[in-house]
Amino acid sequence: MGETTFRVWRGERGKGDFADYRTEVGEGMVVLDAMHQIQAESAGDLAVRWNCKAGKCGSCSAEINGKPRLMCMTRMDELPAGEAVTVEPMRAFPHVRDLVTDVSWNFEVKKKVKPFKPRAPDAPDGTWRMQQEDVDRVQEFRKCIECFLCQDVCHVLRDHHKHDEFIGPRFFVHSAALEMHPLDVEDRVHELKETQGIGYCNITKCCTAVCPEHITITDNAIIPLKERVVDEFYDPVMKLVKLFRRKP
């Protein structure tokens, strides 16, 4: 494929600029390969976080030609030939160095989501019985690799910096996986509205568009949760129905 220019963001704690590097791109290479090659050839101090190189660990998230993507899953032959490739760190998290950001805010947010709380066991031996079709819906959400690309692209975090009031698409998926689980009896709807900011989501579907696991984040997780918030807070008829509905 020949030599290609990479415009890589270099700097520390948000201060820095793009630096150009040229390297030979071969058949089957991904952007992460090119970053490693640049490290080996001309920038030994280039900071890049990576681990599995198989699209399963979610470590090498970055912005390639302006789009949040995994470096290990972005093949060079997908990118426009003959043009410089820009690689920059995610913008929604504190910058550490070069392409590395501090994503620990996400782990703090995760602690705030109420954990799984199963109903009383179905059998005397302390086990439960579930139907496959009941768990089918939440299994999609379990595919999440926590790459946080959805958080990065979400304009509520990326542009409006609502990190104090909004948990972001990743944790709406996490909440949906718990909230819709057939065994779970915990109520997370109040938090979703009051402290986790689901009302900030304006359904642009950017999170769905960048998910490397192709989770239908907006349609299958966020909107169903928004509808549950409507049941609880905005729909008087549903409130009435819930009053008379049998508790699980």
């Binding site: 704690r13 948000g14 912005e63 030609n65 302006g66 789009k67 426009p80 043009e83 820009t86 920059e88 913008r91 929604a92 998290f93 504190p94 910058h95 805010w105 542009d159 409006h160 910096h161 990190h163 104090d164």
Partner: peptide, 20 residues
């Protein structure tokens, strides 16, 4: 704008590195 995390500045209207 209040920023609880030291993240990068908001980009200007229409500013992006997207090529498409």
């Amino acid at each position: 704008m209040h920023r609880s995390l030291p993240v990068m500045d908001q980009r200007k209207f229409g500013e992006t590195l997207r090529r498409d």
